[in-house]
Amino acid sequence: MKLSDFFRKKSSGSVAKDRLKLVLVSDRTNCSPDIMEQIKNDIIAVISKYLEIDTDELDIKITQTEVDGTTEAVPALFANIPIKNLKVH
């Protein structure tokens, strides 16, 4: 661990708060891992029609994001989908 990491280390209290916020988003939306898996597969199926994507590195999750101009957090579907190859049609 670098010295700078030591100073930047988050306190365990704020780690707890961040983890809770995330887990509660999925608890509250009642989004089970099964449904997440289905959403993920459907998204892969749609995008694969147009692009070649890296399904191993793909990351889809429900998280919170702040609305512009407010401090209010709203749930958002976050998807990080690496593209392997742009298919030419």
Binding site: S11, S12, G13, A16, K17, K21
Partner: peptide, 16 residues
């Protein structure tokens, strides 16, 4: 513990 950041404060819990 709240003071040194190792426990969520009551404000944190209320916010959540």
């Amino acid at each position: 513990m709240v003071k040194r950041g190792d426990m969520m404060s009551s404000d944190d819990v209320v916010e959540i």
